[in-house]
Amino acid sequence: MSVSSETAVVLPAHLHARPAGQVVQAAARFQAEVEIEYAGKVANARGVLAVMALGATAGTTVTLRASGPDAAEAVDAVAAVLSAAS
């Protein structure tokens, strides 16, 4: 059975290179596919260039969506990385 999960995160910092790398590290630990949506653009959370190319800036909101057996855990892990970005 496929499970979906979604959450929104307000970014404390720009989603630049280092946090984007941490997002990939976090997302890769799960089977679920995680997507990040920002301003109408969607990036696979395992693609560091696509995540950076979202151009998401501090104070804005991104939406995380995951589907897969561990979707909820995957969304939580990526949300935690984004919430802690500096």
């Binding site: 890769a28 395992r46 560091v48």
Partner: peptide
């Protein structure tokens, strides 16, 4: 860009 994309994914194993 290619090096960065490869390095980040390689670092996940």
């Amino acid at each position: 860009e290619g090096a960065l994309a490869a390095a980040v994914i390689a670092a996940t194993g």
